[in-house]
Design a protein around this nucleic acid. Sequence first.
DNA 1: TATTGTTATACTCTATAACTATA
DNA 2: TATAGTTATAGAGTATAACAATA
Lengths: 181, 181
Amino acid sequence: METKTLKSKKDEGFADEVERLKEPQQTGESHNEATIAPDLASDMDYGVLTELVGYCLRRAQIRIYQDFQEAMEPWAITPPRFSAMILIRNNTRMKLTELARAMGIARSGAVEVVNSLSKLGYVRRCHSPTDRRAYALELTETGGDVLQKVTVVVREHDARISARLSDDEHVQLRKLLNKLG
Amino acid sequence: METKTLKSKKDEGFADEVERLKEPQQTGESHNEATIAPDLASDMDYGVLTELVGYCLRRAQIRIYQDFQEAMEPWAITPPRFSAMILIRNNTRMKLTELARAMGIARSGAVEVVNSLSKLGYVRRCHSPTDRRAYALELTETGGDVLQKVTVVVREHDARISARLSDDEHVQLRKLLNKLG
DNA sequence: TATTGTTATACTCTATAACTATA
DNA sequence: TATAGTTATAGAGTATAACAATA
């Protein structure tokens, strides 16, 4: 399996960088530090933390994030990048500002996401004919193919992390999460 | 209300820095960017995202994080800092390595958290009499007072974000979250 | 004037790897 | 050799503020 990585740096080369993205990542696998287990340590007193929705949620998210990243490593897709690609595909001629709003992040953050997706060759900025300030975002052909493949993998990932939940519980959990805030 | 901030930089002064922590923060409040609304944009198509536990969870976490940070701003307490303080108080003579394990992060990350809490005057490293490599972590008197006050505020925060949930749902949600992974 | 995209800057959270002092 | 703490370095994710081009 190939593996992509994104270093942001200051854009050094270009073709150079895109090439480097496709090199297998130095995962280390060496002699050092044990990788972190994200479960609660049974010999510790967590006090009030276990009663807080926010804390339970954060622990769950750490576990989920790890599984997501491992599953997506070959494509260098992170959760925000995946969201962005879905939104760009599903909402034609989306502008960068709209993407930011849809994702709930600042415009400058959207620039970052689009830059990385653009370097990976998944997303393209097209000049809008009507407003010369604005771009219309769209998936490249590669981006479309990758998104299709990756969506399957994301669904598998979701099933994996929800493996101990019944279908009812899965629905219930999403319902409760959406009631938060 | 006073507001603390932590700049990590390269430790410039010391007393200087501690003083600066207590200065009210330049919140801006100026003419610029609208602050982000973390709700789903109703005019966008989110496709598969709404069916994924991971995505619902991430959106919920963004909302929760924002409320947490606003509530904790006067003390410069972030979620990991709060967890660390609870763990340090509840597990006497905790070592840094144990803290890292309890929090599910790398040791270097625990150093960061302890450094910031130490700069804020909330946590102290005490030399262990038995093992001269190790420290015993403990709350300062200020840290203890702050933690007591802040725990009340965190409980209020948790109640606020769970306001649309019944008690049963609150329990259920935590149960389901703990089944994930 | 307001908006679009962008850049500069900064801060948090996290990781890996290598170092030091001790055990 | 192994462990405790630390530092150096890196990268993702996010934010605010200011800017140029365009509306």
